[in-house]
Every structure is written in structure tokens, then in C-alpha cells.
Simulated assay, not measured.
Amino acid sequence: MSQDKQDPTTAQAVEALERTIDQAKAVAAEIRQAADNLAVVNTVLEEALPEHVQVGEVAQALDQSGQVEAQINRSAEVLDALETAQSELEKKAAQH
């Protein structure tokens, strides 16, 4: 991105936005990795535990773990959307 035509305030704003985008990308990647890891753990537990063991607190824990996995996936989707929006803002800022 060419910043030599921008005033110092705009250049600083663009740099701050670029840092924010980089941080959002890193967080999104970590969240996606956590969701993938949790999905693997859930699958292993559900497949390895016999049905007669998946009752009561164990069943509740498996269900709650699945809900956490879904919540993490939703958070990753929100971060992806924010990342896209920030990229668009960055493009617009570069044009001005």
C-alpha cells in the first residue's frame, strides 16, 4: 500500500488498521485451530466411550463440549467477517 501520498495522520491510521487486521487474522487462526482440536476431541470421546457410559454428567459434558465447539466456530466466522470488513476499509483508506 502506498502511503507516500497520505498525510501523517492518515498514514498512522492505515498502519494501525494494518496491525489490527494482522492481529484479527492471528486470533481467527487460533480460534479455528481450537475449534478443530475440540472437534477431534469430541469425536474421539463420542466414539471411544460406550453408549452406556454416555449418560448423566458424561452426556452433559459431551453436549456442553459440542456447544462450546459451535460457539468457537461462530466466533471464528465473526472474526472472518471483521477481517473482510477491515480489509475493505484498508483498501478505501489507501485510495484516499
Score class of each variant (00 low, 15 high):
63 D>S: 10
4 D>R: 14
46 E>V: 11
34 A>K: 05
43 T>P: 02
1 M>L: 09
56 G>N: 05
57 E>G: 03
73 N>A: 14
15 E>N: 08
49 L>S: 01
25 K>Y: 08
18 E>W: 01
34 A>M: 03
41 V>H: 08
41 V>L: 15
66 G>H: 03
2 S>T: 10
40 V>P: 00
10 T>H: 08
66 G>N: 12
81 A>Q: 15
83 E>M: 13
70 A>W: 05
96 H>Y: 09
34 A>Y: 04
8 P>R: 04
53 V>F: 12
21 I>L: 12
52 H>P: 03
84 T>R: 08
65 S>R: 01
78 V>Y: 11
45 L>R: 04
87 S>V: 02
46 E>D: 12
11 A>Q: 04
10 T>K: 02
44 V>L: 12
16 A>H: 10
69 E>D: 10
84 T>H: 12
48 A>Y: 10
86 Q>P: 00
30 E>S: 14
57 E>N: 10
26 A>R: 15
54 Q>K: 14
16 A>D: 14
66 G>C: 04
84 T>A: 08
59 A>N: 09
67 Q>P: 00
21 I>H: 00
40 V>Y: 10
4 D>F: 14
76 A>H: 01
22 D>N: 15
88 E>T: 13
69 E>Q: 14
24 A>M: 13
71 Q>D: 14
31 I>D: 00
58 V>K: 02
50 P>F: 00
84 T>D: 07
34 A>G: 04
56 G>W: 01
37 N>R: 11
17 L>Q: 01
49 L>Y: 06
87 S>D: 08
82 L>E: 03
47 E>M: 06
6 Q>N: 03
14 V>Q: 11
39 A>Y: 07
76 A>L: 01
19 R>V: 05
19 R>S: 14
76 A>T: 03
38 L>E: 00
31 I>H: 06
20 T>M: 07
2 S>Q: 12
36 D>M: 07
95 Q>P: 01
12 Q>N: 10
29 A>G: 06
36 D>C: 02
18 E>F: 00
38 L>N: 00
41 V>C: 08
7 D>T: 07
30 E>Q: 15
68 V>I: 11
74 R>M: 07
2 S>F: 08
66 G>W: 03
5 K>A: 11
57 E>A: 13
16 A>W: 07
15 E>F: 06
5 K>D: 12
58 V>S: 07
36 D>A: 15
87 S>R: 14
51 E>I: 07
58 V>F: 09
24 A>E: 13
79 L>I: 03
1 M>G: 10
